[in-house]
Design a protein around this nucleic acid. Structure first.
Lengths: 124, 124, 124, 124
DNA sequence: GTGGTCTAGACCACC
DNA sequence: GTGGTCTAGACCACA
């Protein structure tokens, strides 16, 4: 995995885990990779993975069974999706609209660009 | 002004200055607020404003008349617009469309949200 | 049984066993559940129960008859009660009183709360 | 400061900070010691103090002014007191009453012990 | 084997 | 000066 320079690694790891869950690669109530395993897979220090797991636990996305490992909570996918939606509507959308105004882009032009985008990124 | 937690303050200040120029609040060849004045207005350390002005100078958005102050360059609005457009098309737009897909949002719903936004942010 | 997050499970198991003895659910010289049985009943790893039994043996609360199983010692209730009393008076009581002061709780209010508690936890 | 063996150091540091606030040694909106300063004062690694400060930030007890340092929030004392009260009523009180029952201690005897305690710990 | 804690030390962005 | 991130490595409790 290649990490972006703009964001701290542990945040990118939380996003990575959430993606795996949303993509159903890691299922509800199933064990996820141990701290050490994921660390060696992603080529980072175990402490960094630990920090990501800490955050995910606080967010209720994973939980720990002592001595056994971390597991996906049953409502993890819903929570993740909800949080992303919230963030999109609250912060990304207004910023996007503001940019449209500044750049003089109307909803009509946007639609053209969107159609373009869909053609280049067809559903699998 | 309220600063976001996610970005460094000096970057937000450069954006603020650029916004003022794009909105024609600060005109070409006109003097902009001194480092000290803007610092006290925005409630930040003068060094922070200084750093923002440094960057704006490097980008050719403002220039310094010794002993007088900083001024907007004559091609500032064009430059800023160009850069914003570039960034918008290259990185923001694809990410935005990707999120629309993820959240199952169509161009129709987007139009409704946009109309809403326009009503809440009428042009002066 | 629901285990607290704040304490290790094997400690909670020793407390559980001691409670059973104090409540006369498990009598002197009687056989107590085997490691496996208690483990499956409490939904924990047998090693964890084993560790708890080890400690209880060292404390002289239970003893092992080879090939037969663990039994409550004849002086177990007295020992447990003595230890609890000691701990209660030495550490819990002062901390409790200190908290009462901090929260401005008097002996009168405490009595009300205690009556409440008794109503919700009637003796069998 | 002497740390207990039973609890992780960073938790004890959060309690230490809360105590300072409750005792009005550190006032609302005032700067608290920097990570490095407190670390050297308490003879621990800066990372350990950092972890404590992280938690306190999440709890809304302190907040960070970038490049300047951490400060006590204005509602910190109320929050801390509220949390301690909650914990006392929810977990300490029931455990305490349960012990009273097991040890055959009535409210009358408790009152005697409390009077005793008050005599030994007079208000300053 | 699992996670959790702590240290030492480096480097960085920011003010 | 401030906090924040990351690494390397040790040690421990727990299952």
């Amino acid at each position: 995995m290649n990490f972006s320079e703009n964001q701290s690694i542990y945040i990118q790891i939380t996003d990575y885990v959430k993606d795996q869950i949303l993509l159903s690669n890691w299922l509800k109530e199933e064990k996820i990779p141990s701290v050490r395993d994921l660390a060696s897979e992603l080529q980072v220090n175990p402490n960094t993975v630990m920090r990501a797991y800490d955050i995910l636990q606080q967010e209720g996305v994973i939980y720990n069974k002592r001595g056994i490992g971390n597991h996906v909570t049953s409502d993890a996918p819903a929570k993740i999706l909800e949080a992303r939606k919230e963030k999109f509507l609250q912060s990304e959308l207004p910023a996007f609209f503001k940019n449209m105004l500044l750049l003089g882009l109307g909803i009509g032009e946007l639609e053209v660009l969107y159609t373009h985008f869909l053609n280049e990124h067809p559903k699998k």
